[in-house]
Each structure stands twice: as C-alpha cells, then as structure tokens.
C-alpha cells in the first residue's frame, strides 16, 4: 500500500482527509457562530487540523521538522489566544456583548 505510515497500517491519506474535515468544521464554525470566543476556538480547531497534518507528514517522511513546526504553531496559537481573549474581554467591557455581528463600529 502506498504512502503507508510508520508503525501502523494506516495510510497517509486517512490523516489528510481527517485533517481536511476537521479544518472544514473549523471553517464552518467561523461561519455559523457569532460568539467571538467560539470563533477564536474554531480558529484553534483549524490550527490543530494543520498540526495533525504536520505530524502525519513528519511521520511519513521520518523527519522531525514537521513536529517542530507544530511546536511553533502552538506558540503562535497561544500568543494569539491570549491577545485575542484580552481584546475580547476589553470589547465586552465596553459593549457588553461578544456578538461579532455587533462589533461594527468601523462600518459606519
């Protein structure tokens, strides 16, 4: 079987499709949820889908570089989550809502 992963009979294709579906679920979440915090979470979900793919490819190639990238993505995700959440807390203090549909001051 082509593209078989190490130490398991699972094909790389399986993880590619799995990651793609998780990614799409993240996109879907951003589209249908209006709670800004949930949207941030969906972004994390997408990042994790990418991470999964990275690890799968790292395993497939037998090189650690992909996992190092997962590391850096986690760093960025953590930074993004802290700053994003503090912005949201600030916004909530001012607007008393986390509905991104109502954060439209720039529009007017």
């Amino acid at each position: 079987m082509e593209g078989t992963l190490l130490n398991s009979g699972v094909s790389l294709q399986f993880y590619i499709i799995l990651a793609t579906i998780i990614f799409c679920i993240g996109v879907l979440g951003v589209m249908i949820r209006r709670n800004a915090i949930i949207i941030l979470m969906c972004v994390e979900l997408m990042l994790n889908a990418v991470n999964l793919l990275m690890v799968a490819f790292s395993n497939y190639h037998g090189k650690g570089d992909g996992q190092i990238f997962v590391f850096f993505i986690m760093v960025v995700a953590a930074a993004e989550a802290t700053v994003g959440l503090s912005i949201l807390v600030l916004l909530y203090r001012n607007r008393k809502t986390v509905d991104i549909g109502l954060f439209n001051k720039l529009k007017d």
Binding site: E2, T4, Q13, I16, I17, F23, G62, Q67
Partner: peptide, 21 residues
C-alpha cells in the same frame, strides 16, 4: 478538498525513523 486530495499519490519512504517523536 477531499476530492482534490483523494487521488494525491505518495511514494513510500524507506529510511523512516521511529524515534523522531
């Protein structure tokens, strides 16, 4: 996306190392 990736072909890499993790 699945349709696009479904047929992607990957060759098997022999010199894989299971201690990378």
């Amino acid at each position: 996306l699945v349709a696009a990736l479904k047929d992607a072909a990957f060759e098997t890499i022999e010199n894989a190392d299971n201690t990378i993790g």
